[in-house]
């Protein structure tokens, strides 16, 4: 009776880095920063996931995708834990993930804009409008403007470029 060798935590992370986000398939779950922990509890693999936006319909699909990917690699005992705290922020999207988003035509979140300091500052400058410069992911121009704070999925806002006149998605910062 030989005990099967359990794959390393790094190996599991590597597998998870190949699981695409269901709504933006160019980036992976690890790029998105939602895999908060991978650990063995005895012979049970425990993957801790944090939700992005609390009403995001992709949350349950993500759990199914994780389960499927790990079962396919031979993981038999698996538990998915949900962790709410600290809450997910767009600042956790990896540098590689940001590059992939830009190449795909979605302007990545501007680093640091989701920090807690901004939250408080928001109330201060309620309607003064954003002074962020979001470069157009198509032509690189900084002459862009917000069309709507929301977009085609819970994680996006709608912008347009006044240089190349193309509309584009900006990753909604929280």
């Amino acid at each position: 009776m030989s005990r099967p060798v359990l794959p390393s935590v790094d190996q599991v992370r590597q597998w998870l880095s190949e699981v695409p986000d269901p709504e933006i398939p160019v980036i992976s779950l690890t790029d998105l920063g939602i895999i908060r922990d991978v650990a063995w509890d005895g012979d049970t693999l425990v993957v801790t996931v944090t939700p992005t936006y609390s009403g995001c319909p992709a949350t349950s699909i993500i759990n199914l995708d994780i389960e499927q990917a790990l079962r396919d690699r031979g993981i038999e005992k698996l538990r998915l834990d949900r962790r709410l705290s600290p809450p997910w922020t767009t600042d956790w999207i990896s540098a590689e993930g940001r590059e992939k988003l830009r190449a795909y035509g979605i302007a990545p979140p501007v680093e640091g804009t989701a920090a807690d300091g901004r939250l408080a500052a928001r109330v201060e400058r309620l309607a003064s409008g954003s002074n962020l410069v979001i470069p157009c992911p198509r032509c690189g121009s900084s002459r862009t403007e917000m069309v709507s704070r929301f977009g085609s999925t819970p994680c996006k806002a709608s912008w347009r470029c006044t240089e190349c006149l193309e509309p584009f998605d900006y990753f909604k910062c929280i």
Binding site: P51, Y53, S54, L84, S85, P86, P87, W88, T89, A114, L119, R122, V123, L126, A127, G129, R149, F150, K172, I174
Partner: peptide, 23 residues
């Protein structure tokens, strides 16, 4: 802590709502 973590999560979204509705 159960209340605090739900609040912290929701707060980010609601800050976003407030920004838009005030505007």
């Amino acid at each position: 802590p159960r209340v605090a973590e739900i609040a912290a999560k929701s707060l980010k979204e609601v800050a976003y709502h407030l920004e838009r509705s005030a505007d």
